[in-house]
């Protein structure tokens, strides 16, 4: 996972001990993915085992300092140079839920879509408030927030798209699945009128 490369990238700047690394990681990512110090030390010992970092003694207060090795630097360079793989699509609960909603009869799909849209907008409002408060010096954190914002926005756009498709299917109603859908969307309309 990216904690390993993230910590390595931080160590490339200067040798650090565990707590320092955790603080540096969190200040860059705005505590979006909080680390506990145990995770940091576990990761460090694996990095040491793999020859990517090495012990650099202790500071005055007895903290064990780690520094990056040449192999570690190569790994960091490699990480930055390689695009993050899309891999197989993550199992997306929302996509599965909507697929089920249009499959199972009697579900008010538009209501499901709207409930999700409201919830996602609420999260988006929260991210945006954090963004409004972030200063120019918080560039790293601000970009992480932007990533969350664009993700949430993509979800809302997809929901808009689903709703438009459902409305069209309700008008046209061709395949059996869509016909069944037609019925429940019409029913939802009737209830609202």
């Amino acid at each position: 996972m990216s904690i390993r490369q993230g910590l390595l990238a931080l160590l490339e700047q200067e040798p650090m001990y565990g707590y320092q690394l955790r603080a540096a990681f969190e200040s860059s990512t705005g505590a979006t993915w909080p680390l506990n110090v145990g995770q940091v030390y576990t990761t460090l010992s694996r990095l040491e085992r793999d020859g990517l970092v090495e012990s650099a003694g202790h500071d005055d207060e007895g903290h064990g300092i780690y520094r990056i090795t040449p192999a570690g630097r190569a790994e960091v360079a490699d990480w930055f140079a390689t695009p993050v793989g899309r891999g197989t699509p993550p199992r997306d609960e929302l996509a599965i839920k909507l697929a089920m909603a249009v499959t199972v009869p009697g579900v008010d799909v538009r209501a499901v879509v709207q409930a999700q849209r409201t919830a996602t907008l609420r999260a988006l409002q929260d991210y945006t408030r954090l963004k409004a408060r972030a200063t120019d010096s918080d560039l790293a954190w601000s970009l992480v927030l932007d990533s969350l914002v664009f993700d949430a926005e993509a979800e809302v756009r997809w929901l808009d798209h689903c709703e438009a498709r459902l409305a069209r299917a309700a008008r046209d109603g061709q395949s059996t699945g869509e016909q069944r859908q037609t019925v429940s969307v019409h029913q939802a309309d009737e209830v609202r009128r």
Partner: peptide, 27 residues
């Protein structure tokens, strides 16, 4: 644009001339 709506204190949703939902008050 959801990203722009998110700057608001409240987001209300219209559909067919009816207000169907809104996000609650600010956190």
């Amino acid at each position: 644009e959801a990203r722009h709506a998110a700057w608001a204190d409240r987001v209300v949703f219209l559909r067919d001339g009816l207000m169907v939902d809104e996000t609650g008050p600010a956190a």
